[in-house]
Design a protein around this nucleic acid. Structure first.
Lengths: 138, 138
DNA sequence: TTAATTGCAAACCCTTTGCTTCATC
DNA sequence: GATGAAGCAAAGGGTTTGCAATTAA
């Protein structure tokens, strides 16, 4: 599933520039920041190309995406501390008992500032989807 | 900062309906889902009102937002396992050493499906912003 | 009464997509 | 030379906003 990555790709100067930029950057750039940076080298590159390559690189696992977004937000009226399990198959969000990550003193010491909050999210396949999958596999 | 919440609010039937819906719902609805549900009771409510009230309720802390989004994503060329610290003041994202949350067997047992992945994110105020804040406080 | 809130619709922002042209393999 | 990828620009989707009309306090 993830090994035949060389399925069909061409290394273009645009893609290479994006890869280089990401390899060098420590700032977790947005698409726009990548666009701005790469444009210094390739003034004619288009934003669409940046997005297409980011999609491609994320799909290949060469780059990680850190979603922060505002789109597709979900809202939770339950204010009691609890964690969430996200089904990667159907998108459902399940409440699970509060998970309190215990931060080691060493880890705390490595924080680049004052820690106010932490959140552990869980990802997987929910029971419903597992059941459906079983049918597929049979 | 968070105690004079009653600054200026009027309880409208729209706001009440949204609050009720969220209190009842277990599905972590999106704005659109809330809109659809509330519309059964208040057919003339507008999507804009739903969004405005969600903003208001989140700001007041009456509702939590679970961001999942695709907008404002950041990208990371560093594939080594590591965690992130998000500065809530300036929006910067810092790498921190991989944080491996240890899930208790009890917690694992409570998962509503097959756990594939987990991620702990940290939120706070980065050194730069703390320094800037110090000026303000002085 | 009066200021917060609504409905409506247009505007926004980020991201995706269709199409033609370009260039890597 | 085939075909994957680029450039451009228009479309898309979720969310925000301006404004006049309502309505809670």
């Amino acid at each position: 599933m993830s090994n035949n990555k060389t399925a069909s790709r061409r290394m273009t100067k645009q893609r290479q520039a994006i890869i280089n930029m990401l390899a060098k950057s420590k700032e977790h750039p947005t698409a726009e920041m990548i666009y701005a940076a790469v444009r210094q080298e390739l003034p004619d590159i288009s934003l669409g190309t940046v997005y297409r390559n980011l999609q491609f690189l994320v799909a290949e696992g060469q780059v990680h995406e850190i979603a922060q977004g505002r789109v597709g937000s979900r809202f939770d009226g339950n204010l009691l501390p609890h964690s969430h399990f996200f089904c990667q198959s159907c998108g459902a969000v399940y409440d699970i008992p509060a998970y309190e990550a215990e931060i080691s003193p060493e880890c705390l010491h490595n924080m680049p500032g004052q820690l106010l909050n932490q959140r552990t999210d869980f990802f997987g396949i929910c029971q419903d989807c597992l059941a459906a999958e079983r049918v597929k596999k049979a």
